[in-house]
Design a protein around this nucleic acid. Structure first.
Lengths: 192, 192, 192, 192
DNA sequence: AAATAAACGAGACGGTACGTCAGGTCTTAGA
DNA sequence: TCTAAGACCTGACGTACCGTCTCGTTTATTT
């Protein structure tokens, strides 16, 4: 058997959690820029090397925070009421409401910056925003049920929805429910 | 008017151009992160203070670079052949081709990061990508001409198009002409 | 003319003094090992870079402290009473007394270590111990006056005196006036 | 009796030798500063704890290296030809030749630093330089035989000889046979 | 033989300090 | 009075080692 039984101490789960928690808190509190390894280490009561040992970069840390649901934890599981337009609208309003909340104002900016410098973050961010579930299940089901025209490119539909949200989010104050309603009208037009 | 009769030397246009040029080159060469005031100053043969005197931040510099067409110079004025779908497709392919070119791979990431920390950059970036013209002229004209259904939310249409492009651009290698074609099919469905 | 009119601020004398003073205090208080650039910078209220800008190493700093008489300040100017043996004995007792004082116990060790890694320190340390004056004036004068045999190698005489002191100093508790008296008996024997 | 019936494996002689050998090599190759426990452990294929278990400090390791003749191995047993001046001169020239050899240039500095922070090293270094034999036998015998004046302080004589060598050795390039000859003239003057 | 305990290799851990880079401010001399 | 140069304090970077502390394995002794 090959090297399965490594000798020596195991990785400290306690330290791992403390680091991720501290990182998530820093991002929320101060934004992704201003996120420093030193502050994370201090807040997590951990040596800097322990961070560098396990994560290659600041952005990889943020990607793990997303994966562990320490960032954007409660959000964004779209409902399934049978009415696709209503569900998508509700889901978007949920997102918009979250991003509009005072504490979370800068969070989108932070995550976009992190996503721009780390593909992992980009992917996980997409997932956390609910695209996986929404995409894999609802849209294809809707196409099958005739709620969307046959041949609708569902992946592109998701990208257009979230892309528009992200783009508007980067322009301060441009994100409101009026916008999301017009967006739904555009992308999920009411069918005959 | 106050301070009209100021004494002393005027602002050096030479220095201004040198700084913006150096900044643009740095962004293209090394990316927005890695863009440092010190390197710009050194490359432009200029004191750091001369930069700080006229620009409040790194991102404001980039915004000016966009405004002066030192970044994204040649790009993105959509044609008007009468065929809206063809024009939009051509325009998107133009963008995708540019972003796919080896030297420009990281440029989108850079500009997104800059846009995330400076609304000015976000706005100017939108303009440079051709949204103003596209938006103000073609889409509204298309609605009037019946090429788009009446009541089409043209601003949201632009956001969805560009948002989708940006979002895909952040995931490396996800941006190709197949994608843009599906996107056009989704957002500008062939009518009647 | 070559670069005579340099532009920009002059080196801050205030910072220079603060740094040297802090360094000297650290050496006396904690020893040469345990002398850290970070502590010096903090104590001198100075950025680390200001130290690194002007000194290449810890030991160069100590060499400058010796040169500026911030270390071993009060000591070691041998008297000239006409009686060479008495003067040398007094001078050695002076040194031994100083090194035996509680606060200065580790100072010799510190300076020897510094001298071992920096020739400059070695030279200046020799100077500060009074060898230059002693050597250049008293010994050669003594040879001329017949107090020392003609052809006495005065440089080697100094090295032997100080070398013996240093060597004993490195063995804790081996340095006392009995030793210095025997040393003088050995090196400056009472002549006929 | 202490620890007579201890259970468990005995101390590994193999590890002990590997550690001392690695330490000696590191000192010779890189100097006493730059001697790190981690490098020794890696070079000796040994865990760090195995070093810390048996030696309290870096300098204690070096002291053991001297005791085991892994450092300064071949050197410095003075001959006994009957002619004291010749023997001492040969012995000093031997030392000077060794220290002047290219590979050993920094070794004196290293050992002096180690001696300054560990009395054990100082003592053993003295021994290895041959002082014990020289001191205990030759000088006292020489005094008895009338080759040295009665009452000559032999310990101080040794300290002066070695001290002068060490002091010169710390000043690069100041150590040559001219110096040792003058030193012998000074300390062992040709009698009668 | 089984239980026990120490020494071993490996290496993760919380820390300290390193030497470097850049930020943004301030000072000086030249145009 | 604007500019180039650059010294200044601050603070974060990523690295190297420190000395301590587990791990699981390997011996040797004792029960």
């Amino acid at each position: 058997m090959a090297g399965q039984g490594r000798r020596g101490p195991k990785r400290s789960e306690e330290a791992r959690i403390a680091i991720l928690t501290a990182a998530a808190e820093q991002v929320v509190a101060h934004g992704y820029d201003h996120l420093t390894i030193e502050r994370i280490a201090a807040a997590a009561r951990v040596g800097k090397q322990t961070i560098y040992r396990w994560w290659p970069s600041r952005s990889a840390l943020v990607a793990d925070c997303l994966a562990e649901r320490l960032l954007l934890s409660e959000l964004f599981v779209p409902e399934d009421s049978g009415d696709l337009r209503a569900d998508v609208t509700g889901w978007l309003d949920n997102i918009v409401g979250f991003l509009g909340a005072p504490g979370n104002a800068g969070l989108l900016h932070s995550l976009v910056v992190a996503a721009a410098e780390n593909t992992d973050v980009a992917t996980r961010l997409n997932d956390r925003l609910g695209m996986l579930e929404m995409l894999g299940e609802r849209f294809t089901a809707a196409v099958a049920a005739g709620q969307l025209p046959p041949g609708t490119p569902v992946v592109e539909l998701g990208d257009a929805l979230i892309g528009a949200i992200v783009l508007r989010g980067l322009r301060h104050g441009a994100l409101d429910t009026d916008f999301t309603h017009r967006l739904v009208d555009l992308l999920l037009p009411p069918w005959a």
